[in-house]
Simulated assay, not measured.
Amino acid sequence: MTTNAAEKLAAIKTAAPTGWERGNERIGDKGFGSTGAMEPGENADELRLLTKAGFDPKEWIIVGDIQYRELDANIGGGEIKTMQYRKFAVRRKVRTESGFEDLMADIRRRRWKPQAATGAGTFHLAQGDWQLGKVDGDGTAGTVDRIVASIDKAASEFRIQRKRGKPHAHLTFLGDCMEGFVSQGGKNAWRTELTLTEQLRLTRRLMLYSIDQFAPLTDNLSVVSIPGNHDEAVREPGLTTYDDSFAVDSLIAVQDAMNMNANSYGHVRTMVPQRDSLTVTMDVNGTVVTHAHGHQWRPGKHWDWWQGQSFEPGADIGKASLLLAAHGHHFMVDTKGARRYIMTPAQESESTWWKNKTGDHGAPGALTFWSEAGVTGGFTVV
């Protein structure tokens, strides 16, 4: 005759360690309970534990820590099974109209337990609006000093974060890395102190500097560059594609150089927009991120743009939980439901035209933060 699992479990109740047998004791509004034998993997939430010990979960709650013990039990037929036993103290629920006392008791009995690092987190360094070549504020020299300092600070922070379960690094260049000569129909040319090729060389060198600071620190480094409005190669409708950008070309050139040294850069993955696109949407180590410069929408209209881009069935942007952008020249975080919009500040010290028009001075810097499974936090302007 076959013995089912329930009968086997019942047969070993007598084998429970002394004091760990199933049962309960009640003294007024307090008491103690023991579950008796439980199989590994069996549901062990508070409702189940109270029921196993003979308490009505509607009347009682567990207070304090739950004691735990394992025992290898002979259940017959030469079969040995590891069983689990739990003991705990209980208190009768306080019946109040608001339930306030129950809430207070629930808070008091909770214990914070450190969570082990999962290794799934990602450290982000977001940079945008370098506008290299511009004379405004402290000029190109001041901007370069800030960029290098931001990269160095971010790399130092990553050394700490990777020990906390954030071993993946993600570098983003979010457009307008150079001033260019297409904005305002070229009217800003006289306020631009570098030639076009000098702006390009400086952009490429700073991109490579960013990568060089992070590549030795991780086995998983991803890098994205997207077009802005200042770094357009041509601003004549119909003459070129939307991805025709000096910011895109700069990272492609850096990748070509890195291909010649696979030992140092073989673990670095670069991404740029597909042909005729202004954005990159990708899974960054468990968080789907859309990278966009931000000139596609009017200020404050990022949700409208995101919703419109998501309308097409199967659109990658619709799968993103994070929209990462620049263009607005200041740090901003906005949330709607489970989605989050993040805008990084500019690295140029000021736009003199904007300052004279509005009185708004720049607050330059780059942005660091972390993401894990769609959740973001730890925002710091460096």
Results as ranks from 00 to 15, higher is better:
residue 337 G to S: 07
residue 341 Y to D: 02
residue 257 A to K: 13
residue 285 N to K: 01
residue 263 N to S: 01
residue 278 L to V: 04
residue 269 R to M: 02
residue 232 E to C: 05
residue 259 N to K: 14
residue 278 L to M: 06
residue 233 A to R: 12
residue 262 A to T: 01
residue 259 N to I: 05
residue 264 S to Y: 09
residue 240 T to I: 08
residue 356 N to F: 15
residue 305 W to D: 03
residue 320 A to M: 02
residue 248 V to F: 10
residue 330 H to V: 12
residue 323 L to F: 14
residue 359 G to H: 12
residue 242 Y to W: 15
residue 356 N to T: 06
residue 337 G to Q: 04
residue 335 T to K: 11
residue 264 S to E: 11
residue 233 A to E: 13
residue 316 D to G: 07
residue 232 E to T: 06
residue 238 G to T: 05
residue 348 E to A: 14
residue 287 T to G: 08
residue 311 F to N: 12
residue 285 N to A: 00
residue 269 R to W: 05
residue 273 P to R: 07
residue 268 V to A: 10
residue 364 P to D: 04
residue 245 S to G: 03
residue 308 G to A: 04
residue 324 L to T: 04
residue 360 D to R: 13
residue 244 D to V: 09
residue 268 V to R: 06
residue 358 T to G: 04
residue 266 G to A: 00
residue 279 T to H: 12
residue 331 F to W: 10
residue 324 L to Y: 14
residue 310 S to V: 07
residue 360 D to Q: 06
residue 351 S to I: 06
residue 302 H to M: 02
residue 346 A to K: 14
residue 295 H to K: 06
residue 317 I to A: 08
residue 232 E to V: 05
residue 284 V to F: 07
residue 276 D to L: 14
residue 317 I to G: 01
residue 302 H to C: 01
residue 235 R to N: 04
residue 259 N to Q: 14
residue 259 N to H: 09
residue 254 V to S: 10
residue 286 G to T: 00
residue 296 Q to Y: 02
residue 358 T to H: 05
residue 348 E to W: 13
residue 322 L to V: 03
residue 285 N to Y: 01
residue 275 R to W: 15
residue 236 E to Q: 11
residue 273 P to D: 06
residue 352 T to C: 13
residue 253 A to H: 15
residue 237 P to R: 15
residue 310 S to C: 03
residue 246 F to P: 01
residue 350 E to T: 08
residue 346 A to W: 09
residue 356 N to I: 01
residue 302 H to T: 00
residue 333 V to Y: 12
residue 304 D to V: 08
residue 325 A to Q: 12
residue 299 P to L: 03
residue 359 G to S: 02
